[in-house]
Amino acid sequence: MRIFNSTVGRKLLMSISGQLLIIFVLIHLAGNSTIYFGWINAYAEHLHSMPPVVWVFRAIMLAIVGTHICYGVLLTLENKAANPTNYAVKRQLKASFASENMIWTGLLLAAFIVYHLLQFTAKMTPDVAWTSNQAVVDVFKMVVTSFSNAGIVVVYALAMVMLFLHLSHGIPSFLQTMGWNNDKTIPVYGTAGKVISAFLMLAYISIPATILVGLLKL
């Protein structure tokens, strides 16, 4: 199949899987925001009341993340191979820290996702060990307890900086790869990418930050 082998085809797979992940990031943020309205336990309970839906969704997410990571690593290795020698002097005109470090911000985000799942989904990290003898986990209490730890909040904040860097290049990049671009939209997408990723970063950080400073408490 051409789409799985060719350079442009695999870029399309990166772009489409990336777009689906951005949609997930938006939905996840909406879900997380229920914490501000006191609905997070009801929201968690609602999700857990439909295990088949949750597991199908998780399987689809795993496939999307897997596709994005596999092709991301493969394309990066090919790109390094296509440009094996460094210039003694190199002045970048347009490439940014974000665009040049997609693989690293991406892999750090993947590591963060593993940690995040071990913590709040599998409940295997020390800060959530107390939930093991609970019949029904109080999600609000779990989140507030964990985010009262400054170290954990710093890890989350740094991960969201990675999300900002990854999406500030990823958003304009997926639009270009889909071909939805022309001379007028190129600069607009560049700005929109930065604004949207900054919003996502700040919105996500706001939850652990408000808990850490004590605005949101048990």
Binding site: K11, N79, S173
Partner: peptide, 14 residues
């Protein structure tokens, strides 16, 4: 042996 485009846009600038 050319690499894959990752939309740095260095090409247009150069």
């Amino acid at each position: 042996g050319f690499g894959n485009c990752s939309n740095h846009y260095e090409c247009q600038a150069a």
